[in-house]
Design a binder for these strands. Structure first.
Lengths: 348, 348
DNA sequence: GCTAGCACTCTCGCGCTCCGAGTGCTAAGC
DNA sequence: GCTTAGCACTCGGAGCGCGAGAGTGCTAGC
């Protein structure tokens, strides 16, 4: 069962079966290939090839008198070849300049990171017709600013500006603080902690910083507690999901029992994390059983990392059936990640 | 077809049919009522009542030899009586002190408005097993603070603290500004605009404020532009949705064609808005066709406004089949709105 | 006014047959 | 030796009819 046993004709046949199955979602017959694809041989010969491909695990036959369906292994081979440039993407799978332009225009209006991510998921869902996800930037972000803003006597707003994202939290004050006092605490802490990855802001580091702030120990502790939560396991990563109901348009998910696990996985942050991460460098494709989440077998995930100022920050991607126009999906996801990188590097 | 034609026995029968149908999701037969509910009369007599209720539009008969199913009208009557206290809620629909306690504990740990809303949707989904939604506070919120924080030479972070929520936006600077300068602009604008509803911060008001800031016209304009967007039509209302896939557990949504419109409505912000808003005072129930969004017929929405410092701010609610344990759902939604009001009033 | 009895209706599930699509194999041809 | 035409074979799916069962509506009697 070595993948290398595929000669030129078998490749031709396999690609044709994939293309045909992607388009029609029904087992592909030898006749259909014969007179829709110029393979130059008769249906009988194609049958021989299909038979061999079935034995090799690239095709699957639902029952004796049915056509063939590509297996995960077939898609994997196809995608590998595609990404290595050894297979030309079908004409209509390329992104036209007009499409690129439309995507760019939709994205560039957003001057708020979360809006941009939401728009990215939305655009991807609209263009692929699959559920789409964009994660907020995560990973070891470095702190840039801390600001405490007075809200009331017993609480203040802590604004944390980090690379790629900023967030705000409420901190409680055990005793009132003036605006001036808060400003001073912010300044001292910012100076001490700037440039540190949020996850590395430990007690020790901060205590040192707090030395310059006698009498405000509890406030410093409160700020620290928030920072730790912010930069901890959860790391503030959130997901924008769009077009979830699109999955129900796909013929393979007409059965609720097949669709529900997928929707359930898209519902929960923990599984979403597993599905999309770890963030790949370029585009990453997970086909069928390659997915870590049970019940997502039958799905493929195409995801790409976007970058903020050069560093991988978060992920955008789509979840669709394994029967998917990979060339086009990959091109779209890749381009969206690029555009998003660009947009976000201007933002925050 | 006057609703008042219902005598005591018809009421009894109707409530029993509803309860039985909610529990079993199958047309209810007269026999079943007879020996599962102590109505004190025979099946034949119950049949007479059911026949009459069918003619009056409270029950529906899928086919001649089938049992009865409650109509929207029946649920409406039931819910009206329930909320007026004229029908006692079934025993097991009441919230136990233990449940209340659990809800309160889950919610009170959240010190960030968005976390609290997310948790509210999550809790509601977990307890009802229906898709659940929580909206961020909207409406005419009054400004409390403006803060500009330097990010880089060409941009600053604008933190807008308003009643019930705070947000942050990036503003571009046409020329660099020092931290001190930004602080000054923030102070002047805050002093001038504090207390105004975001939607009423017009050009004129702000120009007046800006008079004190010669040479920073463009910065003031940039801030204004952001405020206007922030407080405009979209008003920054966002939705946290949880448990979407739960709808597929319901027997009435085993058919994808019935489920998809519902999921699609939950996907899109515009329809969500229509589904949940306008924010009602206490709990508001929309049954079947009462829903403004086509394709949500067959669903009921139970929603309640939560308040921030006494004013209605946003909404939490669930979307389920019309066949729903209304007493319990209403109690849950109501209690969650209360808890959320409490949590958010401490936050921001 | 209530109830027992009974005929009637309609759905659902089962088994049956038939049709057609598509294969695998074989034997002949280039 | 690879390719191809021809053909038998297999299997799923649609369509049909039937019987069982559930549940009603009606009527006659209490």
């Amino acid at each position: 069962m070595l993948a290398h046993e595929l000669d030129a004709r078998k490749h031709q046949i396999l690609w044709a079966v994939i293309q045909e199955y992607v388009a029609r979602a029904e087992p592909v017959a030898s006749e259909a290939l014969c007179h829709r694809y110029g393979l130059g041989v008769s249906a009988a010969t194609i049958r021989l090839g299909m038979h061999a491909l079935t034995e090799m695990g690239y095709l699957y036959q639902p029952h004796t008198s049915a056509g063939r369906v590509p297996t995960d292994r077939a898609y994997r081979l196809y995608v590998d070849r595609l990404m290595a440039g050894q297979v030309p993407p079908p004409e209509d799978h390329r992104l036209t300049p007009a499409e690129r332009e439309r995507i760019r225009r939709r994205m560039q209006a957003k001057d708020h990171a979360e809006d941009a991510l939401e728009e990215a998921a939305h655009t991807l869902a609209a263009l692929t017709d699959y559920p789409s996800v964009a994660s907020t930037p995560g990973g070891p972000r470095r702190l840039r600013h801390l600001h405490l803003i007075p809200l009331a006597d017993d609480r203040a707003l802590l604004v944390v500006v980090a690379e790629g994202a900023s967030e705000q939290r409420v901190v409680r004050l055990q005793r009132p603080a003036t605006e001036e006092e808060l400003r001073q605490v912010s300044q001292v802490l910012t100076r001490a902690l700037r440039g540190l990855p949020l996850s590395e802001i430990t007690e020790a580091v901060a205590q040192q910083a707090a030395a310059a702030l006698p009498g405000r120990q509890e406030l410093v502790n409160a700020v620290l507690a928030q920072l730790r939560r912010h930069g901890g396991v959860r790391a503030g990563v959130r997901f924008f999901v769009d077009g979830v109901s699109n999955i129900l348009k796909q013929p393979e998910f007409q059965d609720v029992h097949r669709a529900r696990p997928v929707l359930a996985a898209l519902d929960r942050e923990e599984t979403l994390r597993d599905v999309l991460l770890p963030a790949p460098c370029d585009v990453h494709v997970r086909i069928g059983r390659e997915n870590p989440v049970d019940g997502m077998w039958g799905c493929s995930v195409v995801a790409a990392a976007y970058r903020v100022r050069g560093r991988p920050a978060g992920v955008v991607g789509v979840v669709g059936p394994t029967r998917m126009p990979y060339a086009r999906t990959i091109a779209l996801v890749r381009y969206l990640a690029q555009t998003l990188s660009h947009t976000l590097s201007r933002t925050v």
